[in-house]
C-alpha cells in the first residue's frame, strides 16, 4: 500500500553483537511512544543514501515497555544492495532515520497448541520476539537456534536468560547440526513450526516438515514483502495534456496527485476499482499489483490501477 505512515526515529544505542551483526535501538523523535507490535512484525527502515532512499525491512526484536524504543538487528551482508552497508557504516548514535508502521507477515498462530521456533543466524530476530510473547503468555514452545560458531550467536545470552532449557543451540564448530527429523517426531497434534534464516535452511526445514506429514498450514516461514516501490518511469495523460515523472518510492496515483490531477480513489490498496485507468500506450511492461483486474483485463494490457500498479519501462500514456 502506498503512502503509509512514517515515523521519524533517532538511533540511541548501537551494539556490536558479533563480528557481523549490529543491534540498533531507535527512539521516537517526537517523544510520542512507538506503537506496540505483534511478534514476528517488521518495519521498513528508510535510509537517506547520497543518491536515493534505501528501504530495507527488518524484524523488530522488542519494544521498551513504555514505548520509548524499538530494537532491530542488522547483519552485514557481503552482497548487500547498500542497506546493511549503510546501517553498519553510515549510521551512528544520533542519526535520524524514518521507519514505517510495523507490519506482520510472520505472525504466531495464536490458536496453536505448541510452537516450534527455528532460527538460523540473523533469522533469530523475529524468533526472539515470538519466543518472548510465548513465554509471556505461558504457551508451550521450543527454540532451535543454529549458528556458525559460538561467537556468532548474537542473541544466545539474552535467550538463555529468558528461556532456559527451552533453547537448543546448534553450533557448526561443535559439529552440532540442526536436523529436522530429530525435532519433528513426537510433537503434539496442532503444533506449528516457524522458521526464519537463510533460504536454503528454510527450504530444508519446510521440506522435512512435509515429509514428516505435517499439514502445509502448520508450517510457516518469514517472507518479506518487497517494499511497495519500483523503478521510476514517466506518465503522460493524453486528454489532460499533462506529463510527469513517477519516482521509484511513489505510486502512480501519488505522482498524479502531486502534479495536481484529481484522480479518483477509495481504498488505495488495489481492491475497490475506483482508480482504474485506460492505457493507451505502454513503452514497457505493466506491473499489476492489484486484486481488482481479472486475468483477461491484465492480458489485454488496456487497464491499470493507479494506486498500486506501475510500469517497468520508459513511458506510460493514459486515457485521462
Amino acid at each position: 500500500m502506498s503512502g503509509g505512515i512514517e515515523i521519524p526515529v533517532r538511533v540511541v544505542e548501537i551494539e556490536q553483537a558479533t563480528a557481523t551483526v549490529k543491534r540498533f535501538r531507535f527512539a521516537p523523535v517526537s517523544g510520542e511512544p512507538l506503537p506496540p507490535f505483534s511478534s514476528g512484525a517488521h518495519v521498513v527502515v528508510l535510509m537517506p543514501a547520497a543518491d536515493r532512499t534505501i528501504r530495507n525491512a527488518y524484524s523488530l526484536i522488542d519494544r521498551a515497555e513504555d514505548g520509548s524504543s524499538y530494537r532491530i538487528g542488522v547483519l552485514r551482508t557481503p552482497q548487500s544492495r547498500g542497506g546493511s552497508a549503510f546501517m553498519h557504516e553510515q549510521v551512528t548514535v544520533g542519526t535520524e532515520l524514518k521507519i514505517t508502521m510495523p507490519v506482520n507477515l510472520f505472525p504466531l498462530v495464536h490458536a496453536g497448541r505448541k510452537h516450534l521456533l527455528i532460527a538460523g543466524g540473523i533469522g533469530i530476530t523475529p524468533i526472539f520476539a515470538m519466543a518472548e510473547e510465548l513465554r509471556r503468555t505461558d504457551a508451550s514452545y521450543e527454540i532451535h537456534y543454529a549458528m556458525r560458531n559460538t561467537s556468532s550467536g548474537a542473541f544466545v545470552d539474552e535467550l538463555r536468560a529468558r528461556h532456559g532449557d527451552k533453547l537448543k543451540l546448534y553450533r557448526d564448530d561443535f559439529q552440532e547440526t540442526l536436523a529436522v527429523d530429530a525435532i519433528l517426531p513426537n510433537q503434539p497434534l496442532g503444533a506449528h513450526l516457524y522458521v526464519c534464516g537463510p533460504a536454503g535452511m528454510i527450504e530444508a526445514i519446510l521440506e522435512g516438515g512435509r515429509e514428516a506429514g505435517w499439514p502445509e498450514e502448520n508450517l510457516h516461514s518469514e517472507r518479506f514483502q518487497a517494499p511497495p516501490t519500483g523503478e521510476p518511469f514517466s506518465v503522460r495523460l493524453a486528454k489532460a495534456g499533462i506529463a510527469c515523472e513517477v519516482r521509484g518510492d511513489q505510486s502512480l496515483l501519488e505522482a498524479l496527485e502531486q502534479a495536481g490531477v484529481d484522480a479518483p480513489f477509495l481504498c488505495r490498496g488495489g481492491a475497490c476499482g475506483q482508480c482504474e485507468a485506460a492505457v493507451i500506450e505502454a513503452d514497457g511492461e505493466l506491473v499489476h499489483n492489484d486484486h481488482y483486474l481479472t486475468e483477461a483485463d491484465r492480458a489485454s494490457g488496456a487497464k491499470i490501477m493507479l494506486c498500486v500498479s506501475r510500469l517497468k519501462g520508459r513511458e506510460l500514456v493514459l486515457d485521462l
Partner: peptide
C-alpha cells in the same frame, strides 16, 4: 468477486490505517 477482493485487501490492512 466482491468478497475475494475485499478479503485480499483486508489481509493487508495496516496498523494506523483504518478503513
Amino acid at each position: 468477486g466482491i468478497f475475494e477482493r475485499a478479503l485480499k485487501f483486508l489481509l493487508n490492512l495496516q496498523q494506523g490505517r483504518p478503513v
